[in-house]
Simulated scan of single mutants.
Amino acid sequence: MIVIAELLGIPAADQPVFRRWADALFDHTDVDPSAPVLEAGRETMTRLAPTIREMNDYLLDHIRGHRRAPGDDLTGRLLTAEVGGERLDDREIVGFVGLLLLAGHITTTATVGNTVLSLDEHPGVAAELRADPGLLPGAIEESIRCRTPFPRLARRSVIATRIGTTLVPAEAILQLWITAANRDSRVFADPDRFDIRRSPNPHLSFGHGIHFCLGASLARLEARVALRILLDRYRDITVVAPVEERNPWVMMSVNRLLLEVRS
């Protein structure tokens, strides 16, 4: 979170506020999996509206402050970015900054925790990573495939199309299960096996096409740096039960992860 705040020129001292927003937006325990998507969406937006308004007001003040006194940071560059003579308006920049600030930090945090869980389940892999740090990127990709931070995504069909044998009408709301795609045996050999040498590893955890995650490179870098430090600092890392996890219908991540470590 501190890294992203500094990139955006936002005070890192406000981190507790950002964490409160993230918890409100992503840590729901009362989600009904059987509820229709649109109905669940309306209920969720009603519940989250106060948090979203508070966040948008905060970010709008930040952006307007940068318009008065531009800084050499990502927010300042967004204000001057231009394509075909068009620039982003304040509302568009609020959406961009809010997405990067919240989704950008919480998914990387999830990846670090999820990878630690995976290494605890496969102690031999942790030893391999200490012996050969070059294997760490592959371990992170496999962790993201097996424990996908956002297990499902909603999409709206723009035109009528066909997926396999199913006809999808225009304007339909689709619930896409990324976790299922990431364990498709037609794409991944032995899909339930945690294999840090899996190559290729075309998982969809970062999305695809025009929906590909804009922060994927940053997330991978942050996870690699954090986990490298963790493995270098401690020769032994053991997860202590119980593990407190988020509601996996919303996000696959841990809220609280106790570790016993030895230097």
Rank of each mutant, 00 (worst) to 15 (best):
T80R: 14
R64L: 15
P33S: 00
I140K: 01
L74K: 02
R91L: 14
L7Y: 05
L129F: 01
L135P: 05
D132R: 10
G164I: 08
L214D: 05
D61W: 00
P169Y: 07
D73K: 09
L119D: 06
Y234W: 15
D72P: 07
V17A: 12
V97N: 01
T165N: 12
R183H: 14
N114G: 03
R233D: 13
A181D: 04
D236V: 00
I237A: 13
D61C: 00
R183K: 12
R197Y: 02
A13L: 04
D190M: 03
D27V: 06
T51R: 03
A40E: 12
D23S: 14
H105K: 05
E82H: 02
S199L: 07
G9R: 12
L117S: 09
V225K: 03
S143C: 04
V250H: 00
A219Q: 03
V158C: 09
E6D: 15
D32R: 10
I159K: 11
V240R: 14
G41Q: 04
R77Y: 04
D72W: 03
I210Y: 02
E141P: 04
R145P: 06
V97H: 01
R130N: 05
S157T: 14
G113R: 03
L218C: 10
A81H: 05
F188V: 05
V187Q: 07
D27C: 06
A189Y: 04
A241W: 00
D192T: 13
T44H: 14
R198W: 03
V254M: 04
P200A: 03
T109P: 00
A131Y: 02
Q175R: 14
V94K: 04
R147I: 05
R19L: 14
R20V: 00
N182D: 10
I4L: 06
L204M: 15
V3R: 01
L176N: 03
P169W: 08
P33M: 06
M1S: 13
R224F: 06
H66E: 11
R183T: 11
M55G: 08
G124M: 08
P242E: 08
V239P: 05
R20K: 13
L8R: 06
I106A: 00
A81T: 12
A5M: 13
L78G: 07
L136P: 05
H28A: 15
L136W: 01
V243I: 15
E92C: 00
V125G: 11
P33N: 08
E260N: 10
T161A: 14
